[in-house]
């Protein structure tokens, strides 16, 4: 059984405000319970796989200045700094 308090705690870590949205908790719980099916399959001999690439195929080390003044199309404060909310 998935603990609802745990779902609420995780939501907070993901910066999701669940105030007045308890219906999400129930729905997430249902999905997690469906995932229990993963307990029924034998995966003991499986390895994790991924796409692979040769070192030589990677990007060459060259400086290419970004032609646009990107910061001007983003939120910026004075002197082109980005302002973040107050850190505690």
């Amino acid at each position: 059984m998935v603990d609802e308090g745990e779902i609420i705690r995780v939501a907070k870590l993901m910066k999701i405000d669940l105030e007045d949205h308890t219906e999400h908790v129930g729905r997430v719980k249902k999905m997690l319970e469906y995932f229990d099916i993963l307990d029924q399959i034998d995966l003991s001999s499986e390895e994790i796989v991924s796409q692979e690439k040769a070192l030589a195929e990677l990007r060459k080390d060259e400086f290419v200045p970004n032609d646009k003044k990107l910061i001007e199309s983003l939120k910026n404060f004075r002197e082109h700094y980005v302002r973040a909310p107050k850190m505690n």
Partner: peptide
């Protein structure tokens, strides 16, 4: 929102 919460849960 639900998928983000799931996404915080299942790989934690």
């Amino acid at each position: 929102i639900r998928r983000i919460i799931l996404g915080g849960f299942v790989p934690s």
